[in-house]
């Protein structure tokens, strides 16, 4: 009972980050995950803007959850979400024009993002404002993390180097973006990049392989748990048999 009275629950923040990651585990929001992850910076920017929209829409919808009539709840949610997307769009256009042009139409498409609407429907309309805030933050961080992983893999494999400062212009050095040569030298003396990963096909491959790796790890964990449970059962059975033997011996 004590648990229920608390205003914030740590789990609502921690769970969506990895255990129930919106992209890798629940497979929601795949459109931006494939479209804007060509570069690491665009992925990070998209993640931050996504978190902003999700946190605010979650808080507002949770605060209005007793006022919104049940019959028209989806249109109400969509209007709330669209308002924050429009605010985000205008702010990004004004302050980070490079990010705005690299995200393109996918910034506006946050309105129909399955995660934002899904969290409103599945969480914010049943829980307190504080919990919804944490849930929004957790899902935002989880999604950002997932986008950044895909973005890193695709940028490094696709262009051979990690470029910082093209979109977040404030981290430029002497007015130029920083290039970190990983698979490709700046002067071009070696080049192991695979340009396929910059193409649409590369996005599908990256997401598919990452999901397969996660599935493989989970399968492995499940197999280990199963083996352990089996061993434990055997040990218990042996112990019981021993005890029975001892009891019989004691009787004699």
């Amino acid at each position: 009972m004590e648990e229920k009275k608390r205003y914030f629950h740590k789990e609502s923040f921690l769970k969506p980050i990895w255990q129930e990651n919106p992209l890798f585990v629940l497979v929601l929001g795949t459109c931006p995950a494939l479209a804007v992850t060509k570069t690491f910076e665009a992925s990070l920017g998209m993640g931050i803007l996504f978190t902003f929209v999700l946190v605010f829409s979650n808080v507002i919808i949770s605060a209005l959850r007793k006022i919104i009539p049940d019959e028209v709840h989806i249109p109400c949610y969509i209007v709330v979400i669209a308002t924050f997307v429009t605010i985000t769009k205008m702010m990004t256009e004004a302050f980070l024009p490079e990010l705005y042009s690299s995200l393109g139409v996918f910034l506006a498409l946050l309105v129909v993002n399955c995660i934002v609407l899904g969290r409103a429907e599945a969480f914010a309309n049943k829980n307190t404002v504080g919990d919804s805030l944490l849930d929004g933050l957790g899902n935002g961080v989880g999604f950002t993390l997932a986008l950044c992983i895909i973005g890193l893999v695709r940028e490094i494999l696709g262009t051979g180097m990690l470029t910082l400062g093209n979109i977040f212009t404030f981290i430029q050095v002497n007015g130029e973006a920083i290039h970190l040569p990983i698979l490709k030298a700046v002067d071009g003396s070696y080049d192991f990049s695979i340009s396929l990963f910059s193409n649409p096909a590369g996005g599908f491959i990256t997401l598919g392989v990452i999901m397969a790796i996660i599935a493989a790890v989970n399968n492995h964990k499940a197999a280990i748990a199963k083996a352990k449970a089996l061993e434990e059962k055997k040990r218990q059975a042996a112990l019981k048999a021993q005890q029975a033997q001892a009891a019989v011996g004691g009787d004699k």
Binding site: P200, G202, G203, F204, I205, G208, V209, M211, A212, A215
Partner: peptide, 23 residues
């Protein structure tokens, strides 16, 4: 298909091959 690729991962790889064809 390999066990880890069953379901969605192999569908995504298939989509990647389709995307290559459409290129």
């Amino acid at each position: 298909t390999p066990k880890a690729f069953k379901g969605l991962p192999i569908a995504l790889i298939t989509a990647a091959l389709m995307a290559l064809a459409f290129m």
